[in-house]
Write a protein that binds this DNA or RNA. Structure first.
Ligand code: SF4
Ligand code: SF4
Lengths: 133, 133
DNA sequence: TTAAAATACGACTTTTTAGGTCTTATTTTG
DNA sequence: CAAAATAAGACCTAAAAAGTCGTATTTTAA
């Protein structure tokens, strides 16, 4: 299943929304209502984006989020890693589950699989969030 | 989650195995034991490959499988579609679930998402099973 | 002609992940 | 101090991936 998760889509939609409000500070609620995204879920996504400085946040009643980086500096691969953790199209290429594959010994396709991953990542690395705006 | 499923990996491993046995007929059991793949699961994967003529099968006690196509004629994208059905990196791009996305109306990233899909597919379409051997 | 060993098929169960919710704390403004 | 926002983590639910079971059918050879 080569798919983008909803979280990634929500992040992209939100970043585009925030970008459109150029420098005004926007709340999670405002975004979730306008884009029809579950509020709490979006909130947690935005928090992750903040941790990686993709967004800056202001707490308190007048608070909200604004961009912390330029959209053309955020690659899709970085966004995915920010939200989902280290990538890896198969078990043996995920840092957090090396050795979990029962086929490691009998596996006869490790190297070419690695190549596929490299090529897919190249696409994701060259695709910037600014391409979504 | 940009990942290959186990089924896809099993299919690739099996195809490589069969290819190595050049024209000898091999049984599902033989493959599953040599590659350490769950037998019944592999059996069903091989059946799907047969339906798309990637493999040819012989029933009965002396039966088994052999290649039905040359490995350099089978793209990774075709293999994925054979096993998992029509691809689509997001709901609105999957033929079997158009209209299931609650954000279709508010969505502001449809076109660029489509582009990402095109680029990923290009990779999968140009990658042939022969590249795994 | 029948037992054995293979493919063929569909229903089912289990495990894992994605998607979403709830609760509580903290921060900041008016 | 109340209201409205972010922050954080536990929790629940639904869907998908991974694997199993049961049974039918096909073919060979004793
Ligand atoms: S089957 Fe091979 S390629 Fe796939 S995860 Fe296991 S070792 Fe890696
Ligand atoms: S959010 Fe937009 S891109 Fe994603 S599935 Fe819905 S309509 Fe398609």
């Amino acid at each position: 299943m080569v798919r983008l998760t909803k979280k990634i889509e929500y992040a992209l939609m939100a970043l585009k929304y925030i970008s459109d409000e150029c420098d005004k500070i926007v709340t999670a609620k405002q975004i979730s209502e306008n884009l029809n995204i579950p509020n709490q879920l979006l909130a947690k996504i935005l928090q992750k984006l903040k941790k990686e400085k993709i967004l800056e946040s202001v707490q308190g009643i007048k608070g909200g989020y604004k961009l912390g980086k330029k959209l053309n500096e955020i690659s899709l691969s970085f966004l995915i890693e920010t939200i989902e953790g280290d990538m890896g199209i198969v078990d043996c290429l995920k840092t957090d589950r090396q050795g979990e594959c029962c086929q490691t010994d009998s596996c006869n396709i490790k190297d070419p699989i690695n190549q596929v991953q490299t090529e897919i990542y190249k696409v994701l690395k060259n695709k910037m969030v600014s391409d979504f705006v």
